[in-house]
Each structure stands twice: as C-alpha cells, then as structure tokens.
Amino acid sequence: MRTRLKGINTVRAKLADGTEATYYYHRATGTRLVGHPGTPEFLASFQSAARSAAQDRGAGTISWLIRQYQASGQFTNLADSTQEIAKLNLKAVEDKWGATPLEHAQAQRTRPLFLRWHDKLAEAHPRAADAKLAALARVLSWGVDRGHITNNPIATFERAYRADRAEMIWLPEHVTAFEEAASPELRLALMLALHTGQRQADLLALPWSAYDGKAITLRQGKNRRAVYVPATTALRTALDAAPRRATTILVTDRGTSWKKRNFHEHWSEATKAAGITVDLHFHDLRGTAVTMLAEAGCTVPEIATITGHSQAHAQKILDRYLARTRSLAEAAIVKLEGHHRNRKLQNALQNGSKAST
C-alpha cells in the first residue's frame, strides 16, 4: 500500500525533444525529490528534506540549537539509554526556553534567568533540576564549539543535589554476606563487577563473545571508550564454569538476559537478605574495584585503563577511600588506647585492694 505524502509540489515540463517530464519538490524547502512516488528512493528523499525543514525551523533560537545538537555525532554516538534521558531533559528545556533567541541565550546577563529557573525546579526535585540545567549547558557548550554562539553563560553552576558516593566501598564482610545470601546468577554479577570495575549497564549487556578465555574486551556504553580487562584467575574460573544459556554472560535463573528493573529488584532483595544495612549499591562495586586495584599496587593510570574512569575520578575515589580508612584507623586507635587505660586502672584498683588487706 502506497503511503500518501503531503507537502509535495508536482511540476510538469515539456522537454526539447517534445516529451513531458514530471518533477517533484518538497514544498517547505523547495528541495527536488529523487525517484518516483511510491519507491523507497523517493520516500528517503522526502524524509531527508523533512528533517532539513525541521532543523531549519526556528533558526536562531535555543530550539534550533537543540535540534542541531541532537543531529550531531556527539549526541547520536551516545548509548540509547543516555540519549533517551537526554531527550527528556532537553524537552523540558525546550518547553521553557525554546523560543529564546541565541543572541539572548549567549548573553552573560541571561545567566541569572537560567539559574532562577534551576533554583525553582530544585525546590521540589534538586537532582532533576541539575540534570535539566546541565542538558542546556551541554547544548550551549556544543554551540560554542561549532561557532553558533560565542559564550555559554552557564558553563559552570552550583548543583542543588549533592551525593558523593566515592567513599562508599563494599568491605570484605559485605561481599561474604552477599555471596552467602545471593543466587549463583547474582554471585557471578558480583564477581564480574569486582574484577572488572565496569558499569552495571555494560555488564548486563556483556556478551560471551567479549570473553576470549583470557580477557574481556568491551566498548563502554556511556562514553564509548574501548576497554581491555585481563581476567583474574578467580574470574576466569567463574566464567569457565558458568553455563552459556544466552548470548549475554549474566542471565536470570531462567536463563534469559536481565532487564534493568528486574535485576535491580533481585539485587536489592539479595542485599536485604544478606543483612547489609549500609547504603551500598551495585554501582559502588565500581569504586570498590578501584580501591582493590590500588591496594594491589596499581597506579592511577593503570587503574583508569582497566575501569574506564578518568584518572581524576579514579584519584578522587582513592582520596575518599583513604580518608575513610584513616578516620576508621584513628577511631580504632582511640578505642585501643581507652581499653589500655581501663586495664591499667583496673590493675591499679586491684593492687590497691590487695595492699589494704
């Protein structure tokens, strides 16, 4: 069945040899369309012209700049899940600021307007407010790089949501408790996370083809960074013993690949069953892997090569971890010295009691 397309101008012309030719044009852009109506070539030509018209609509506004950004490789190369979240945030930006001329958007005097919008949103949803303003800032920065504007007035801003989990580490007792309570499928997920330092989304999608018996090779979904992780002896043993029931390494107890929400529910249940009362998440295993590598003597550049962190972020995790372990050590010494003082006092009282008798 032929799809009826709207917005096409048909022009018939008589050629020099006396024959008649028919030409088709996209009405909004004046673009001549290739092929004949009903053919895939014609449909592709029409869709290309329509996209061009959409991008040109509202030229010189924030809406126009958002469309240019979303059509760029910087956006299309992002993971599908990242694009989906970004589109939601950019839709909110466009609803509020889409008609704003770029001349005003790039002016430094506009910064207070953007920040007041952010502050108003943050009263109810601070994390969402940060995400929306960050999305606008990202588009404006892209616009500066491409020469569409000359300034990004919100290149930096103070975030409303503060949650630094760099110091949240799975300690050996947490790992042991989880392994005792979790299913074999979740224990393998724990092993992969601890021994590779990769994100949950990448591990859930990791295919068996990424493992060659010696190492795991993958391209991270968030930043498209290629990572090569030699497998530890323990990880090789676990992977070699695991049944290959699907294309992905990690599967449910029914042998099907995990869905994000389903995995989260099962992981939370296992954490609760393990009696882990500390606010630990699966993502914290990534930071735990960084500290394990550091304790094994790896340098920050070596750690970043394996986990895919930036060196600055890897160093930040280590700084937080060391600060935590120092405070724990200091608290332990205070308790030890207090114990020694109590013992001395008890001995002195006992000796004094014996002397009086």
Rank of each mutant, 00 (worst) to 15 (best):
M1Q: 08
I8C: 09
R12A: 02
A13K: 15
T19S: 14
T22A: 09
A28P: 07
L33G: 03
G35E: 01
L43N: 05
A50I: 00
S52A: 15
L65N: 00
S72N: 10
Q74A: 14
F75M: 06
T76W: 13
N77W: 03
S81R: 15
T82C: 06
T82Y: 08
L88Y: 14
W97Q: 02
G98D: 07
H104M: 08
Q106L: 04
A107K: 10
T110P: 04
E123P: 03
A135H: 06
R138G: 02
W142L: 05
G147M: 01
I154K: 01
E158K: 15
Y161Q: 08
R162N: 05
E167M: 08
W170P: 00
L171T: 04
E180M: 12
E180A: 15
A182F: 07
L192D: 02
A193E: 04
A205R: 13
S209C: 00
R219M: 06
G221D: 11
N223P: 10
A242G: 14
L250D: 09
K260T: 13
H264W: 14
S268K: 11
I276Y: 11
A294H: 07
C298H: 14
E302G: 10
E302T: 09
T305C: 13
A312L: 06
I317K: 05
L322R: 15
R326K: 12
L328Q: 05
A329H: 13
A329P: 00
H339F: 12
S353T: 11
